[in-house]
């Protein structure tokens, strides 16, 4: 539910290992269960391959690996969040969807400048929620390097 204009962010939160992340609800087209993907040769490691999404060839990205963490070992429990990034549709492989949130934009804190392994461009900020901490993903940055690495 959208409360008021620009001030509220609607987010879908999901888990990768023991960490929580989120993306904007408006970029999510659907969420579906994991199906084995067709491997794409000469692709970055985090690109799991392509699956058939009702006739559309959908690339699936292992978000955990993309963020520099351990690669996922997908099971039936894993889900693919189908997101619209620019003109492209990309599937993000995550462990599970955990929450749907509506938070004021002012709650987003800048990400600390700590991590060497995690590309800071990929993180829009941090969201403290009670005793949890949710990492807000910058979707646009996810696909940029695919073209660079593939080229």
């Amino acid at each position: 539910m959208r409360i008021s204009g620009n001030d509220m962010l609607e987010l879908i939160a999901f888990t990768l290992g023991d960490q929580e992340f989120c993306v904007e609800v408006m970029s999510v087209r659907e969420i579906r269960s994991w199906t084995p993907a067709t491997i794409l040769p000469h692709s970055p490691d985090y690109v799991r391959g392509v699956i058939n999404l009702r006739g559309v060839v959908l690339p699936v990205m292992d978000l955990s690996q993309r963020l520099g963490m351990a690669p996922a070992e997908p099971t039936q429990g894993h889900v693919i969040i189908v997101t619209q990034i620019g003109t492209q549709i990309v599937g993000l492989l995550v462990d599970a969807v955990s929450d749907i949130l509506a938070v004021p934009a002012s709650d987003v804190h800048p990400a600390p400048d700590l991590s060497k392994t995690m590309d800071r461009n990929l993180i829009r900020g941090m969201l403290p929620m009670d005793d949890r901490m949710i990492c807000f993903i910058q979707l646009n940055a996810l696909t940029v390097s695919i073209e660079r690495e593939a080229a």
Partner: peptide, 23 residues
């Protein structure tokens, strides 16, 4: 097309969907 949602893959011309629903 693979380029529509991904990018050009060397050695691969395009994709298709087979009878088992897989790409």
């Amino acid at each position: 097309s693979l380029e529509a949602n991904y990018t050009n893959v060397p050695g691969i011309a395009a994709a298709t969907i087979l009878g088992d629903g897989r790409v």
